[in-house]
Write a protein that binds this DNA or RNA. Structure first.
Lengths: 228, 228
DNA sequence: ACAAATCGCGAACGGCGTTTGCGGTTTACA
DNA sequence: TGTAAACCGCAAACGCCGTTCGCGATTTGT
């Protein structure tokens, strides 16, 4: 008559679903242990290696058993994401101005993407926001409190900052991986001319910070730099 | 002794592999027809609906037959991407200054993402760049010719512009899809306070352009706006 | 003419997420 | 305290996926 604990009608999201009932025997595993095993697997072998069977094997059980704790693989990815976002704690105190604090948060995000590259494949799914992500968002709103602009603009700015940081993280992880094999470069004259030109000293070490600063001020203060 | 035309050792990428040999009977389909069917399927039912079997069924054949024209599903996605990028033609003539032209190119990219939302799920894969993408890149380099800065900076800026445009496109496609169901909002005081605040008039209609302008000038001219 | 190469096709393989049914265990409640 | 409901782990199975293979038929190069 009853169904598995996690599946079934599946009305409420994973965050508010109780981990176990009070009737049966003690579970052999825990939701957090499963998530931890999945994160370890994703860190070492990539997100593609995070299959239900592989995660279950890492815990010494079968794939079907995981559905006592989760209702789907998407739930697992949501839990993984939120747990990883939790590593952004503790949040820095607001010491200087809000801009420096936000840039610091961006650098922390960048480091998180470096520690868990699979986050890049996961953040863009339309899915439920977990409590850790909400807490991080809440902290951003707190930092931006002195900024006098509509709330919607703050929301959009925070999302855009996260997106831009993810772009930088992606550039670092897949640096120069694309190859021109099998194409006739003669058809692209400006490209080959640019390649012939001696490469500049590549001076920008603070490209991320400069970009973030420009983005934050541009979006929040409503003033964009003009150049002719 | 022989293998299928597209599979086998698979040394050279799809761009330079001949579509068919000269020995056997005439093929019933073509590489481009397959790609077109796949794009139509992706446009209407999403990228997840683009399975080998579904594409083959749309052409009235079996899944295995597609491997006479392609060596893998990844090849199909590469071809789809490059064909979609080809819709960015014809490129605008350089009339005004380079900044306006680049912003125009960014708006065209945004429109392309709107026409083919599955591009958002595809562009970030590390894979071979097709001839249309190379042509678009070549055109960007041409537009940026009057800008005096290292070539590497131009490459990074173009990639970053594409990335930022993809972020905006994603925001438009999944507008306000996240729900707070199942979470206790009381734990996030700054969030609820921000929500209580009357939402501003949401004035920015040119947010994309302002962001792109700020990004391009910031990355290429090396001057970032400072705000205290 | 004949062999080599290619065609469409259907069956099959291994892997995936997920469901289901089962025997055994623990708890809530009459 | 007895019993029924709820929960556990497990293994098998379902349907889908990308991909491979072998077959008879067809076309081409020499």
């Amino acid at each position: 008559m009853s169904d598995t604990a996690a599946s079934g009608p599946d009305r409420q999201p994973i965050w508010s679903r109780p981990e176990r009932g009070s009737r049966g025997p003690a579970p052999a595993h825990s939701r957090d242990a499963i998530v931890l095993a999945a994160i370890t697997l994703a860190d070492t072998e990539g997100l593609a290696a995070v299959s239900m069977r592989a995660v279950a094997a890492a815990l010494g059980t079968g794939a079907g058993s995981l559905y006592r704790y989760l209702s789907s693989r998407d739930d697992l990815l949501d839990l993984m994401t939120d747990r990883a976002v939790g590593e952004l704690r503790p949040y820095p105190q607001v010491e200087g101005d809000w801009l420096e604090t936000m840039v610091l948060l961006g650098r922390r995000q960048l480091a998180l993407f470096g520690a868990h590259p699979w986050l890049l494949d996961v953040i863009h799914r339309p899915s439920g926001i977990g409590p850790q992500s909400l807490a991080w968002f809440d902290n951003c709103i707190r930092i931006l409190e002195p900024v006098r602009c509509p709330v919607a603009a703050k929301f959009e700015t925070i999302a855009m900052m996260t997106g831009v940081v993810s772009l930088f993280a992606r550039r670092e992880s897949a640096a120069g991986a694309f190859s021109f094999a099998g194409v006739d470069l003669a058809a692209y004259p400006h490209l080959v001319a640019a390649f012939r030109q001696p490469s500049g000293p590549a001076p920008r070490a603070d490209l991320v910070e400069r970009t973030l600063r420009s983005l934050l001020t541009g979006l929040l203060l409503g003033e964009s730099t003009e150049a002719g």
